[in-house]
Design a protein around this nucleic acid. Sequence first.
DNA 1: GTCTATAAAGCGATAGAC
DNA 2: GTCTATCGCTTTATAGAC
Lengths: 194, 194
Amino acid sequence: MLQAREDAIVASVNRLLAEKGFDLMTVDEVVADVGIAKASLYKHFTSKEELAAAAMVKVLERSLDEHARLEAIGGAAVQKLKAMVRWTLQVQMAGEMPSLPAQNSSLRAALGNHPVYMDRLLRLSDELGGWITDAQSDGSVRSSLPPELVLYTLFARACDPVLGLLKLGGQYSDEQIIDLLLTTCFDGLAAGAS
Amino acid sequence: MLQAREDAIVASVNRLLAEKGFDLMTVDEVVADVGIAKASLYKHFTSKEELAAAAMVKVLERSLDEHARLEAIGGAAVQKLKAMVRWTLQVQMAGEMPSLPAQNSSLRAALGNHPVYMDRLLRLSDELGGWITDAQSDGSVRSSLPPELVLYTLFARACDPVLGLLKLGGQYSDEQIIDLLLTTCFDGLAAGAS
DNA sequence: GTCTATAAAGCGATAGAC
DNA sequence: GTCTATCGCTTTATAGAC
């Protein structure tokens, strides 16, 4: 009962974060969506930042699950990285990727002091970091790029605004858009080797 | 006098938009930064959205100036595109690139109904579109990519979060970061041809 | 733990004197 | 056109009854 209610809250928060972002999402909207009173929500989560953190933990754990699934299947490191980015883009395409403005200071502070969030974030970073160094070792990802840069670039696909712009244009299917974004991410805009 | 004051207002808005974004920027901060009363500001600009639009028009006109400068110098289309992205990244690096959350509906509506903003945006899109088709014709940019996608991808460099993350790390100089981002944008993460 | 009702603060925007 | 003072509204968060 209790856990199910919290899950329902987090699901609503996740959707609203994806739709409007942290600043424009209001707690009143969340409770209206879940169908409970605001005071009840504050018995489960102590602040709006705590709500966002719970949604982020959830999506990070979904990402860790997908990572484990791909690791079990096996294959070349670069192919696993591409599959991970594809999964991320699919989540964003489905409107299920919570977007946190990187600029909000109160939220950044709250996330930085959130042990569970930081644990999941660091674990995912470590796991992907392993694939990145593997892919650089076998020559499929540029060795001249700092692994840090590669990791950030992959993470940034979760909030790539180009996806939304292409979707708005309406000229391409969801899968076509994802393929195009994967191409620009891994192969770049330029043709051939430069 | 009057024009100088409006310029001062727009300059403050531009800096605050780059620093905090539209939602977190308050009109009180703007007037405190400029050193005038809030009612005075509202004699010049009728709303907060109007303020943001003025800052966006300003930066679009700076972009058009840079485009004209590069066009006058000449060179290969893809090199001009790279130079334009480099300029964009330098502006962002200097903390002078206003960032507008793509999700804010009131702001999007205000910008869409702002004739001057739309004119500058479409003019810049047209100019860059010309370079893009040129670069695709001479084989330096992938012809398989829709020009629309290339344009959006270039525009998105203005708010690429990877720049801020790398800068935060403190391991690379500003110029190194810009070079790295140009590489990932045009050449991709993968090595060689895939 | 759930609710209604409200506190406390911040926001965009305006009134009205000068 | 500038200012001080304030309106009217929204927001996060809490008090207190049940």
